Each structure stands twice: as structure tokens, then as C-alpha cells.
Amino acid sequence: MTDQELQTLVEAISAEYFARPFRHRARFNKRLRTTGGRYLIRSHDIEINPRHLEEYGEAELIGIVKHELCHYHLHLEKRGYQHKDRDFQELLKQVGGSRYCQEVGNGRTRLPYRYELVCSSCDMRYKRKRRMDPARYRCGRCRGKLRLEELALR
């Protein structure tokens, strides 16, 4: 789907579900990572994460567009457009938009623990993802000296 097709889809959803025109721009933004879309308050434009269309299809995309259009129309009417506002929650329920979007694999993976600080006195172990200087710290349990050990990655 291109940006122009998205623009047409957003205009059609706005006319059908909100009975109001969408007079600004809708576009895909592949830099969005953790959200399905966003409404830009200053320009009144809507940006959509294209990964949701790729992974979950057009039904998920329509739910996200309805959600962003709720922000759009309520903001232009000077009513409560934030997630916490009752106006937003009621309009979202009325049009059948999605409150939350599906999680997208955004390429980020959790780093495994690579290091361990070990106390020389009580053998307390502290796992760390980043390398650090053990001479600057002491054990939280017994105030003993720490030594840094590198863990084998699995």
C-alpha cells in the first residue's frame, strides 16, 4: 500500500465512521517502533507504522486508523482527545477502533547478561549487561571487594 492509497483509506474511514472529512495528510512512517500510529497535534497529520499492515493485515490497520482519527476529530473540535479523556474513550468505542495495537517485531532483542560482579567475601553475584569497573563499587550486602567475571554466551 502506498501513501496515496493510505490517504484515500483514511478519508473513506473518516467519512463513513465519523461523518466528517479528513483534510490533512496521512502517511506511513517506518521509523515508528513501538506504536501503531500517531496523530501530530501541530500539523494535524497522521502517521502509521507500515509493519502493522505487513504483519497483521488491513483489519489491524483500519483499527489503528480509527484510533488516530478519534484523536484528530476530537482535537479539532476542542474536546478531550487524549487517551485518558472520556470523550476519546466513548468515541473510540462508538466507532470500533482499537484501544491497543498488536506488538510488532521491531528488530530489538534483549541483550543477555554478559558480565557478573562477584563479591570476594560473601560470594554475592550481580549480573550486568555492560562492562564496568569493579574497583569503584563494593558489595551491597557485606561491603566486600568485587571482581568482574565475563559470562559465556549461550
Rank of each mutant, 00 (worst) to 15 (best):
M1A: 05
M1V: 05
T2Y: 04
Q4F: 11
E5S: 01
L6F: 01
Q7N: 03
T8R: 11
L9K: 12
E11C: 09
E11R: 14
I13H: 10
I13P: 04
I13F: 14
S14Q: 00
S14E: 03
A15H: 15
E16S: 08
Y17S: 06
Y17H: 12
F18E: 01
R20Y: 13
P21H: 15
P21S: 12
R23S: 07
R25K: 14
A26G: 09
A26M: 04
F28E: 03
F28W: 09
K30W: 01
L32A: 12
L32P: 14
T35M: 04
T35C: 06
G36M: 02
R38C: 00
R38L: 00
Y39Q: 00
Y39H: 00
L40V: 12
L40A: 07
R42P: 04
R42C: 06
R42Y: 07
R42L: 05
R42G: 06
S43H: 08
H44I: 00
H44S: 06
H44N: 08
D45W: 05
I46N: 05
I46L: 12
E47C: 04
I48K: 02
I48Q: 02
I48V: 10
E54L: 00
Y56S: 00
G57F: 03
G57M: 01
E60L: 10
E60C: 13
L61K: 01
I62R: 11
V65C: 07
V65K: 01
K66L: 14
H67F: 11
E68R: 08
E68Y: 10
C70M: 06
H71T: 07
H71C: 08
H75V: 00
K78Y: 09
K78R: 14
K78T: 09
R79E: 08
G80D: 02
Y81S: 05
Y81E: 04
Q82V: 10
K84A: 15
D85W: 08
R86H: 14
F88K: 01
F88P: 05
E90A: 07
L91Y: 10
L91C: 10
L92P: 02
Q94Y: 11
Q94A: 12
V95Q: 13
R99K: 15
C101N: 15
Q102R: 15
E103N: 11
E103Y: 12
V104R: 03
N106Q: 10
N106T: 13
N106W: 07
G107A: 06
R108P: 03
R108H: 11
R110D: 11
L111I: 06
C119A: 02
S121W: 01
C122N: 00
D123Y: 09
R125G: 13
Y126K: 05
K127G: 01
R128E: 14
K129S: 05
K129P: 05
R131C: 14
M132S: 14
M132T: 15
M132L: 15
M132I: 15
D133A: 11
P134F: 07
A135I: 03
R136C: 12
R136H: 08
Y137V: 15
C139Q: 07
G140Q: 07
G140I: 09
R143Y: 13
G144K: 08
G144W: 08
K145W: 07
L146N: 06
R147C: 08
E149G: 03
E150R: 11
E150Q: 12
A152M: 10
